[in-house]
Design a protein around this nucleic acid. Structure first.
Lengths: 206, 206
DNA sequence: AGCAATAACGTAACAGCGTCACGATATGGC
DNA sequence: GCCATATCGTGACGCTGTTACGTTATTGCT
C-alpha cells in the first residue's frame, strides 16, 4: 500500500560516489549535508536515514578513502628488489595524499568534529596495513630489515603519515627538491636503521 | 567623551588564558565563541574585535601551544650524551601531546575548518624547531649522526608527529608496552639510519 | 550642576549548520 | 473510486560564526 522506497542501498552508493569528489573539491567546510543532498538529487532526511548522522556519513567517506588507497596498491607490481618495493608503496601513499589531500585528512587526521575514528575504524585500514606488512615481511625474509613485521609496519606508516601531513601543510620545505630530499632521507634512514647488524640498533632491545 | 575601553590587550591575554584550558576540557566541538566569551566574562563582539574572526582566535591558541611546548623544553637538561638528549626532546614532545591532546591537534593537525596554518604560521614553531636543530647539531658534531641539520630535524619532527598522531588516535597499539616499544623502535631506527658509515645510507645521496 | 557629543558596549538579528517532527504524498488492495 | 499506510521532503529547532545597530557610560563645555 505504501509508495516505493527510494532510500535504498543504491541511493546510498550514489551519494557516496558524489560525496568523495565533492569533499575534495569543496574542502571540509564545504562538505555539508544540505549541499551533498542537493548534489545527489535527494533530501537531507534521506541522508540521515541512510547514514544515521553526519559522523556516519564521514565514516563512510573514510572507509572509501582506504578502499581507494588499497586499489592504488593493486597497480603496483613486484620487482625482485624487496626494499625497492617497500619504498615504492610508501611513495604510493605519498602520491595518494598529494592527489587527495582533503580525503587524506579525513583518513589520517580528524578535520570533522563529528567523526573520531577509534579503534573500530582502525580495522578499515586493515587491508591497507596488510599490504604493507606483506612487503615488510618480504624485506625481513630477504634479510633487508630485521624485527617484528607488525611493529615495523606501524613505524613506517607513522613516518609516512608524518611526512605526508607535513608536506600537505607546506611545512616540509618550500622547494620541491627539498621536500623530495627529506622524503628520501627519512625513508632511507628508517630502512637503514631497521636493517640488520647495525650496532646501535641493539640498544632498542636492551 | 566616550567611555573607557575594556577590549584591551589585557582582556586579550585573559581570554587566551581561559581559552587553552577550555579547549582541552571541552574539545574542538565545545570550543565556541559564545562559550569562550561567557567563560571569560565578556561578549562575543569583544572576541571579534580582539581576534578578527574564529580563525584568528584559534591561531593565537596555536601560537600559545608552541610557546608551551618550548617552555617544556627549558625544563630539560643537557647530559654528556648528545644522542640521549635528542631522544629526550622527542620524548618531551610525546609527553606534551599526551598531556594536551586537543591542543596538539590544533598545532599539528587542522581540526578547525576556519584555521589552516600556512607557511606564515610555520614560523611559530620556529623556536621549537631551533631547539631541536640545536640538539641535532650536537649529535652531528659528536659524530653520532651525519647530514644536514635542518633536513634531519625535519625528518625527526615528521616521525615524532606521525607517531604522536597515531598514538593519540589509538592506532599505534592497544597496550602501553606495544606503543612504547614502537616508539623506541622508530626513534632508534631513525637515529641509527642517520648515523655515519651505514652502507645503505649512501643510496640516499645517489 | 546639567547637558550634549561621542565612542565603546552588548543585545539581537542574519545566514547557515546538523537534525528531526510532522504534514503532504503516492501507491496497492478493496 | 476510495482507503489505509508507508515513505517522502518541507519546515522548524537550537546551535554556530558574524555583525548591524540601538543603548550606555563617560568627558568637556556651558
Amino acid at each position: 500500500m505504501p509508495r516505493l522506497k527510494e532510500r535504498t542501498p543504491e541511493l546510498r552508493d550514489r551519494v557516496l560516489r558524489v560525496a568523495v569528489p565533492m569533499l575534495e573539491a569543496g574542502g571540509v567546510s564545504g562538505f555539508t549535508a544540505r549541499r551533498l543532498a542537493a548534489q545527489a538529487k535527494t533530501s537531507t532526511p534521506a541522508l540521515y536515514e541512510l547514514f544515521g548522522d553526519k559522523g556516519g556519513l564521514v565514516r563512510e567517506v573514510f572507509f572509501e578513502g582506504f578502499r581507494m588507497l588499497r586499489r592504488r596498491f593493486d597497480t603496483l607490481d613486484d620487482t625482485p628488489d624487496p626494499r625497492a618495493d617497500l619504498v615504492q608503496v610508501i611513495g604510493a601513499i605519498r602520491s595518494f595524499v598529494r592527489d587527495n589531500p582533503v580525503l587524506a585528512e579525513v583518513m589520517f587526521s580528524r578535520p570533522f568534529a563529528d567523526f573520531d575514528p577509534g579503534t573500530d575504524e582502525t580495522a578499515a585500514g586493515g587491508s591497507v596495513r596488510e599490504f604493507i606488512v606483506g612487503r615488510v615481511r618480504r624485506c625481513i625474509d630477504a634479510g633487508v630489515i630485521e624485527g617484528n613485521e607488525t611493529d615495523i609496519a606501524h613505524v613506517l606508516l607513522a613516518l609516512t603519515q608524518g611526512l605526508a601531513g607535513q608536506e600537505n601543510a607546506g611545512w616540509l620545505g618550500t622547494s620541491e627538491s627539498s621536500v623530495d630530499r627529506r622524503w628520501a632521507l627519512a625513508v632511507n634512514a628508517a630502512l637503514d636503521g631497521l636493517g640488520p647488524a647495525t650496532p646501535r640498533a641493539r640498544r632498542a632491545q636492551s
